[in-house]
Design a protein around this nucleic acid. Structure first.
Lengths: 281, 281
DNA sequence: ATGCCTTACGTTATACGTAATTATT
DNA sequence: AATAATTACGTATAACGTAAGGCAT
């Protein structure tokens, strides 16, 4: 029977020009390669080489065989690659989220519950999240609205509440609460990658000037160093709240978002994992 | 390393549903197949089966693997088929001819000279013959005009002379020779598959009525049984000339065709073979 | 003299089938 | 009981590397 190994060897011979060189490249002995190529010729029923006493040269059939071998081997490599990708996916939990903070919450919980699994997380638009969950690109998604769909489980997760983070000397710092309208005319620091919060920014904050920072560390440094107001939320505060800041809640309805976790039924256990572990907080 | 045999076995398992049935179909023992599939799982790095105590079922990875295996195997089968076709072509001399008689001459000569080769012969149009010779579809062609082309050898072969074959009682039977115009108004028997002779038929025989026969044996029988005139040539007469017939040569220039043999340079020996053997006649 | 291919030879590894084991229908 | 899968075991095949031979550059 035709062996893939023989085809690999044939290609090596074609590449290196001599059996000796190919054998060395393949880490086998010359005689072994000689025999293997003879066998291949038998299997295919054609001589692939023109045999001079001291040299083998690919003949027309040999060149054809090399070409064909390339096709077969790339099909085989494709198979191996796709199977490997699938195997990897079995060891990976892909999380998709519509906002950053819930994602930061979820991924450590998962990796604690599934230490042997690789956890990947990325933000995406709600539509893409839903599609991705159905198609298997994501095993768990965080949405800002419950998802009612056959085969999909959806549970309320956390509520994120927006605050203005102010230096104590700021005029608004003594307020119990503010509305977004109170912030009109302010210059604020803003971290990018807002996810669904982007909508709030686009629609309700036209009267605010923003200094946008895309790097997390630079953003933290900026906040510590400046007296400009910024935003924070009940969730972001868990991860190193900045010093010397007063957080005043924002009362507008849009400043509070309730997040939901959705999984396909066959990954129900992921939900349990998150909720179980969440109680530790 | 991945083995094509494992893929074949996997497909057999998918097809037959159990290892036992597949093993029987493959003419190997169950344990052997079990081990082979375990090995395949190791190579691919994924479990392909859901193992119940008494049964193996393809899981998702297994189904994917079956699909991929199909692709790989058909690539491999494609390779084997193409190599086999090439191997066969090495054992085949394909003759193309623009007329039947020279073809009948050439093929027996070739098969006597090359007893190990398969000789195929077919009629075709001059253009197709030339293309086929260049592309390697034909190794030898018979044309009605010399072919001057680099890389191609062309030699005069035989001349075919057209005769009217008449019953002795026919008015024209006593003539030394005739012109085609003398045949106007006759009803003649004609064998189809004329090749280049077709042109003569189309252009110079509009005044003749023909009874066309497409089977060689039926045609011979017809000739023996009827008193209708027909055509014959110096070449066809070699193969069983009909009894009680007088053959009168046709003087028109178009009633004589000179044929040429053409081969590519690397098949020069074919020419020698034909000419060498031809002298025996 | 060196490089390259092939054949010969002895060893090792691996791949097979039979038999035994366990579990299911 | 009968069917099915896996594991265990002894054997036989076939694949490897080393060694030897032949030929060409």
């Amino acid at each position: 029977m035709l062996e893939l190994e023989q085809l690999t060897q044939l290609m090596a011979v074609a590449e290196h020009g001599t059996l000796s060189a190919a054998a060395e490249a393949l880490h086998i002995s010359q005689p072994s390669l000689t025999r293997s190529m003879q066998k291949l010729e038998n299997v295919l029923g054609v001589a692939l080489f023109e045999r001079k006493k001291n040299r083998v040269l690919l003949n027309e059939a040999g060149l054809l065989a090399v070409e064909e071998a390339g096709k077969v081997l790339s099909a085989a490599e494709g198979m191996e690659a796709r199977m490997a990708a699938y195997a990897r996916s079995l060891r990976t939990i892909a999380v998709g989220s519509c906002a950053p903070a819930p994602m930061w919450e979820v991924t450590p919980l998962l990796s604690r519950q599934y230490p042997e699994m690789t956890i990947t997380a990325e933000m995406n638009e709600p539509d893409k999240l839903e599609d991705g969950l159905v198609s298997g690109t994501y095993q768990l998604i965080v949405t800002d609205a419950p998802l009612e769909k056959p085969g999909i489980l959806c549970q309320e997760y956390v509520t994120e509440q927006l605050y203005v983070s102010l230096p104590p000397a700021h005029p608004l710092a003594k307020r119990e609460a503010v509305h977004l309208s109170d912030l009109a005319g302010q210059t604020m620091l803003l971290f990018s990658e807002l996810g669904v919060w982007q909508r709030l920014h686009d629609e309700k904050m036209q009267d605010i000037r923003f200094i946008v920072q895309t790097e997390r560390k630079a953003f933290s440094d900026l906040i510590s160093a400046s007296v400009l107001p910024s935003f924070t939320t009940n969730l972001t505060q868990r991860y190193g709240a900045p010093m010397n800041r007063v957080n005043v809640p924002i009362l507008d309805q849009e400043a509070t978002i309730r997040f939901y976790l959705c999984v396909s039924e066959k990954h129900r256990s992921l939900l349990d994992a998150v909720y179980t572990d969440n109680t530790h907080h």
